[in-house]
Nucleic acid binder design. Structure first.
Lengths: 208, 208
DNA sequence: GTCTATATGCAGATAGAC
DNA sequence: GTCTATCTGCATATAGAC
């Protein structure tokens, strides 16, 4: 009963899968067209060049995370609450669509020039939300950690790596995994509180 | 006064640099020969195929880490001491030669067949040292953490990511960075002790 | 919108002289 | 051991019919 998705969707899905598995440079455009059960010309008709396809995947993956972090910062009060929620959004996103996030997180080097710069701006703006949240937490005594900028970057990379191993069939459902990571993020920052102590509205969805 | 290294060394260095910057599939064998200031035939003469070169880089990068972890487990007493030291070795190695470690950690997918399997065996054996150490710490009460296997993997990836951003000109020297990561590893595992409380012989070098 | 056919260049790898 | 010259195939991208 499942309808076959329209061609542009199939192309995009195939590209995400192959870029994640074999890398951008390890994937041929014919591989993409073949997996999407269409032709090379169809790919160029719908998606433009191979680079265009990569940029599109990256943008539509990173941008919602950036907007979600923005919303968390504008909505929740308290650095512990904000950091927990940002971590949970990030882990959830990386668990629910690991392939698109692997591509976004590892293939920036395949781009060059202006388009590369634009993606890096997005990525840096996103990290800055994490950094600001932690800095405020250190300021107001919610967190107690040396070299907070370095530890925050370590935390971000720790959460990102979820996309490399998480499988929904494992010991934890994605919601539980997100909570676990938020709890460990607080431990990493030397917070007095734990995730389960916090008052956070549930369900809290800030991702489109 | 610095002598130019012999050709095989220059080739290896060039390959590590380029594989780290552009990825294995983004690097041409001519690029490697050119950067090493030699020729394509010389590359094949000394290094064999492009795949051989990658496998050699990976093996000589991962194997010392595995042996170091083995030595730590055989030499130091107590899970907190062992985990701290394993973390420090790992962070130090990833900071002192980020490029070789980036290649080893991200280009496994470029291999296939038996050689790929061999690298994965090494990598899994290495992770198992981390997992056993943490499991023993949970067992004897040194650590207090839910889902230790998942958190240990998260820790490992956090430490690995050092290779993506660490620069020796930054705010921390590599020894201090290693100590910081060891300390945060203990926090992540819910250890009562901190890195500065532990009795660990200094300098402790387990890497060749 | 989707197809077949093709232009153009670079990839990995090797031959054989010196 | 290092060189120049070359084989072979696949890469991205496009032309033009239907």
């Amino acid at each position: 009963m499942t309808e076959r998705p329209p061609t542009p969707v199939r192309l995009r899905t195939a590209a995400v899968e192959l870029f994640a598995e074999r890398g951008f440079n390890g994937t041929g455009i014919r591989d993409i067209a073949t997996r999407a059960e269409t032709t090379l010309s169809s790919l160029y008709h719908h998606c433009g060049s191979k680079d265009d396809l990569l940029v599109d995947i990256m943008f539509t993956t990173i941008e919602p995370l950036l907007r979600a972090a923005e919303k968390v910062r504008a909505t929740l009060a308290g650095p512990a609450e904000q950091l927990s929620m940002i971590v949970e959004q990030h882990v959830w996103a990386h668990g629910v669509d690991p392939q698109a996030n692997i591509v976004s997180d590892t293939e920036v080097r395949a781009l060059s020039g202006e388009r590369r710069d634009q993606i890096i701006v997005l990525r840096d703006a996103y990290e800055e939300f994490w950094q600001e949240t932690v800095a405020e937490g250190v300021q107001d005594g919610s967190f107690d950690v040396e070299h907070p900028r370095i530890v925050t970057r370590a935390l971000l990379e720790m959460c990102t790596s979820v996309s490399h191993w998480y499988r929904p069939t494992g010991e934890l459902a994605l919601d539980d995994l997100s909570h676990l990571y938020a709890d460990r993020a607080l431990a990493l920052m030397g917070a007095r509180s734990r995730r389960s102590d916090l008052q956070i509205p549930e369900p809290a969805h800030f991702l489109g």
